[in-house]
Structures are given as C-alpha cells and as structure tokens.
Design a binder for these strands. Sequence first.
DNA 1: CTCGTATACCTACGACGTAGACGAAAGGCC
DNA 2: GGCCTTTCGTCTACGTCGTAGGTATACGAG
Lengths: 221, 221
Amino acid sequence: MAAQKRLNRDELVSTALAVVDAEGLEAVTIRRLAQHHEVTPMALYRHFPDKEGVLDAIAERLLSDVRCPEPDDRPWHEQMHDLMTAILDALMPHPNAATLLTLRILGCEPGLDLTERTLSLLFEAGMTREDAADTACQVLASLISLVVSEPGRAHGPDPDAQEEALRAKRALFLTLSPRRYPHLIASADALVSCASRDSYYRRGVLLLVTGLRGTVSLSAA
Amino acid sequence: MAAQKRLNRDELVSTALAVVDAEGLEAVTIRRLAQHHEVTPMALYRHFPDKEGVLDAIAERLLSDVRCPEPDDRPWHEQMHDLMTAILDALMPHPNAATLLTLRILGCEPGLDLTERTLSLLFEAGMTREDAADTACQVLASLISLVVSEPGRAHGPDPDAQEEALRAKRALFLTLSPRRYPHLIASADALVSCASRDSYYRRGVLLLVTGLRGTVSLSAA
DNA sequence: CTCGTATACCTACGACGTAGACGAAAGGCC
DNA sequence: GGCCTTTCGTCTACGTCGTAGGTATACGAG
C-alpha cells in the first residue's frame, strides 16, 4: 500500500478499517497492518498500546464520522429522528466494524458526545435520569444492531465467498418444511437479503422513534 | 472437570458456555475445552467441524433455552410482549454469549422457530411480507443488543478485574467536563451500571412493543 | 473371532500477539 | 555546526492458537 518510513496513526486506522470492510473483523491482525505499510509488526506498538487499541481506534473513527445535527427548536422527536439517521448514515458503510461499537461507545470522546446529545433529547422529552440512561443505551445499541444484522450480510474472505454464502443460505431456506415455517418461507427473500436497504433503515428509525413517543407520553399521563 | 473417556457433545457445549459466562468469548479455545475434559485438543474435532462449530453450538444452546409461549387468542401485541420477555429471560444469564446470536439466529433450528413465531405475530398485526421480515430482524437484534450492552457489564478474566474495570469507568466519568457533558454526568450512575436490571429490561420491551403498535396502526390508517 | 467404524491420540506447522534490547533518525538547544 | 534527548522502526524470541495428517484402540455387528 503506502511505503513511507514514518508511520501515521490515522492512516493505520484507515487501512485497518478497509480490511474490516473487505474481509471482516477477524482479518485485522497486527501483522497484516504492518505488511500493508511495509513495516515490522512491532512498529505498530509505537502507535497503539496493543491490538485492542487498534480496535478501539477503529470504533472511535466510526463514531467520529457521525455528522451530528445541531440542536434546534423543533420538537424533540424530530431532532431524535435526525440524530438517529445521522448515526445510521455513518455506520451503514461499515457493517463489519459496527460490532465494535457495542461496548465502546462510552469509551471515546465522539461516543460520549453522541450519548450526551441523546440524553439531552430524552430529558427534553420529559424522562427521568434513570429512564433516560437506560433508554439512551438501548437506542444506541439498537441502531448499531440494525446495521450489524442487516439482512443479506455474510462474512467471508472475499466477495465471491460472500455471494456464495448468500446462495447457500437461500438454498437452505428452500429446504425448510412449508408446514412448519410458512411465514418464514413467505418472507424468505426479504430475510436473506433485504428488499430495500433504504426502507429497512427507515422502518428501523420509525420503530424506535414511535416507541419513544409512545412510552414518553404514557409515562407523562 | 469431568474425567470420562467418552466425550459428550452436550457437555462440551455446557463447559464452553460456562467459560464464556465466566471469562468472555475470547477465553473459549479448543485447547481449554479439551483440558477441562482431560482430553487432547484434537479430540474435539470428532464433535465439531472447527472452532466456529463450537460457537455455533453455544448459540444454538442459548436459543433452545428460550421457553417460547404457545400461541393463544389474546391480541398480537400481548403475545409479542410475552415472546420478547421469554427471549430475554433466556439470554440475560449469558450476556457474553449473546453476541454470538446476532449473525446466527437463522442458522439453527431453535432460531428459525423463534423467527417464525415473530413473523407470524407481525403478520397477524397486519404487516406485509417485506415489512414483517425487516421488522422481525430488527426486533430480535434489538433484544440481543439489549442484553449485550446492558449497562454495567465489563469484560475481564475474573470478577476482580471486572469490578476494577467498573470502578475505573466510574472514575473516568467524574473527570468529564460538567459544562460539556451535563446530562451524561447527571445519569452517570445509571450509565455505568444500571440502577435496576428489571426496569431496564421492562423498558426495553415496552419501547419495542409500543413502537410496533404505533407503526402498525399508522400504516393501517 | 473378525473386521469396520467410531473415537481419541500424537506430531507438527504456520499464524498470531507481544516482550525486550538495540540502532537510527529527528528535533531542540547551545 | 555539534551535542543530546526523544521518538520511532527493527530484530529476535517466546508462548499460544487452530488444525492438517497419520496412527492406535476399543466396541458392535456379522
């Protein structure tokens, strides 16, 4: 890839992210990253404490990609909708890496910012401290899981293997007993690879926002 | 642990699950499982195709622990509520293992059963095939993520290290700028370890069910 | 008793994360 | 320029991992 003598942390993270996107999380190894930069594996330890540190940095990169909308004076749920959409926009291109975020949001600055913003909207909606905390965690986690488990994702070394895996999955669905799994077979296509990414994510956000509005208003009553 | 000559697949899975629960996913190695059963590492390959196979089996075990309630003639959303609660009850004791489920639900029988049941309730609610498929994925993924990212979880080799990690996180929160993170600091306690597990999960289910009812009724209108 | 099959064992390989000591180069200060 | 300190990449080496390939044993059916 790049052949400079002086390593650069940001570029290391970029190639790490590229590897995750192309071949999955388990393809990220210290040795491979070093090879990409034509450098000894141990060189990376000048820039990261250990491999965990590399993964942490990938997570932070993803979170810092979120273009968090500024607060305005629209109702909280509209702002929440936009915030959630912004988060999804940042994560969607990196479904393999998104898994990393689940336990790392509160461990880096951009993650803290996002959480703060989410909490502030939930407070605005009238939630208590505890409810807001629990709910913020769930909302953020749900967004991540929406990306991670988007139907149609497969983890393989290369695109060929991934397509192959999809075909296999589809074939496997056809072998199921129609008596036992009628609904599953009816929705088979949509389950193995979602019909429209766009509507999948729009439904996801809608479900959460609707849930929030509903629970808030009934606890206010 | 057990010192029998004849290995037993179910018991292997049980000790694997025990290891995950106690020390996290990365502590599960072929060699350790073999050691627990006083056997050569290669012996395990008579019972699992490879390490992935072991993880698959753990996932399947978790899913088969779900005590799926029988269909009855209450409204769909009440049945959905109970189904979700049943799933959470099965996953809650194994937060470390729950991560495995995200990409494995559709890969084993108990997972298919659960998905079928979820789909059937969503159809009953009036959803289309595509909507039901997308929504079922999201609901199941959200339940899993609810468990995986329950506030207060830490991953360490032993309970001491985990408690230590919690203390560290709490301390880190106190160093945050109150100007920049007012809401986050206000909810700090609940974020680092949730006040009441019970209400955390109840809120989680409520949020989803409310969201479902809301989106269904508005698409019907 | 015999023989096929299932099971466990042994040996060995390559990839991984990373500790520790070392050398070279960059940058600040006179 | 000359020097010194800090930074950064290199080298060597260790222990652990997953697992391929071949071998030994024990059991059940004929």
